[in-house]
Design a protein around this nucleic acid. Structure first.
Lengths: 237, 237
DNA sequence: ATAAGAGCTTGAATCATATCGAGGGCTTTC
DNA sequence: GAAAGCCCTCGATATGATTCAAGCTCTTAT
């Protein structure tokens, strides 16, 4: 059972040890974190955090995928970010959540009580510096996404999303040419600021134009990475 | 001459002393910053930083307004953020800029050579903690804007923008009912993911519906804050 | 086996925003 | 005081994405 394996692990065997918020901690600091950490799991579809609720804990995604999102009163929904393994959930220094966080697959988190973690952040430069680095990376990613949401066409949005998943899927720094989509059509629509029908239509169009091959609903392969990249709209100079 | 006044100031007289990156520094730390800071001014319309260029300095906006933006090859432009007094420009730990920063009014910056500032960040918890706090605030703001860009109608976008300016314009924590727009129609369009014509049309529509009064092209007053807020689309629960 | 539901695709009609085109009111320049 | 340029407004038309509606393919339940 995977769960048990993860729960048994100490930090030195943790799969996200060198990418998460603890990446630059030394042995002593890791030991301190190890003592106060606890694991929690969430089933696919379950809320991890509700906007407006008190934030009892913060933590890192160890496995699975979650989304950061916000709902409008009339039901419109926008996803602001994808949380993949090593990404951090929650914000030290604030006691209520501002966004909803939802598990889209089964998710395992490495959690800390918020107060304890805030204390660690204040006392441990390695952690606060790593937090800053991660926050600035996320800020850059959020701003890239703003260009997509504000200015790209539906086709460019889909192509950009596919390239992003292809890039994040690969282990080294290349781009994967075959992968599973981590999201349903609906979740992609919420992430891209589109409707589910528009997402579906544009997948079909990209398939018809031989830019992607759909092996089933979720499996995608990309015969020509550069051709797909060209469809994503050129933002980097 | 305002310029000279600012240039003469030491940190203790600085208008952004208690909101900027140095907000939580003690006297000794302020003294250290004081020694390595220098002021730079940029005329309206001038670039402050180019995407792809080496970042020689980082710093805080002391006066004026700047925008963070990105251009696509075909000319489409998206503004990712407004930089108002006390906001921070640049990213320690990265040596080339990822976005363009442009002065939209005359701008005065309190600058530090990037290397010196990185050293201060590493040695001064008050600064790195404040940087983290500001980065997390910006991240929240960026995510709010993603909801606007992805899901709001043109009318809701304009109303949201007006409420944001009204809020930021006020000195205390109320909402200003009269203010000057810091941006041209074109700059607003780039910020809201719209065209200049759509911005103009929706200003006219809001005026016709008595939700705003346009005193001239730039001066706006809001007869009924709650009525305008209702047009902004309900995202906060 | 059959039914029910979730996730996806497709077509047709509609609508919001973009595009194209024109012109008005400023300010600056010579 | 004419000319040029910037910023803004508005009408007509075009178009990309949404909405509405239907049906398809799985999987799960009965």
């Amino acid at each position: 059972m995977i769960q048990a394996l993860i729960l048994d692990r100490n930090c030195s065997q943790c799969p996200i040890r060198h990418r998460a918020v603890c990446a630059t901690c030394d042995d002593e600091e890791i030991l301190a974190l190890d003592k106060i950490k606890f694991y929690r799991t969430f089933e696919a579809g379950q809320p991890i955090m509700w906007s407006g609720d008190r934030m009892e804990f913060v933590g890192s995604v160890v496995s699975g995928t979650a989304t950061i999102e916000r709902l409008m009163e009339d039901g419109r929904k926008q996803t602001m970010g994808l949380l993949l393994p090593s990404d951090f959930i929650g914000r030290p220094g604030r006691n209520t959540a501002v966004f909803d966080v939802t598990a889209v697959t089964d998710v395992t988190l490495c959690c800390f009580r918020r107060e304890s973690f805030e204390k660690m952040v204040a006392e441990t430069p390695h952690i606060s510096q790593r937090m800053l680095e991660m926050a600035l990376d996320e800020l850059d990613a959020a701003r890239d996404w703003m260009l997509l949401l504000g200015r790209k066409t539906a086709r460019e949005k889909i192509a950009t999303f596919l390239m992003m998943v292809a890039r994040r899927t690969s282990i080294d720094d290349t781009v994967a040419t075959r992968f599973e989509l981590p999201l349903t059509r609906e979740a992609m629509a919420d992430f891209l600021g589109l409707t589910i029908e528009t997402v579906s239509r544009n997948f079909s169009a990209l398939r018809k134009d031989k830019l992607i091959v759909l092996e089933d609903k979720r499996g995608v392969s990309i015969p020509d990475i550069d051709a797909l990249q060209a469809e994503a709209g050129s933002d980097a100079p």
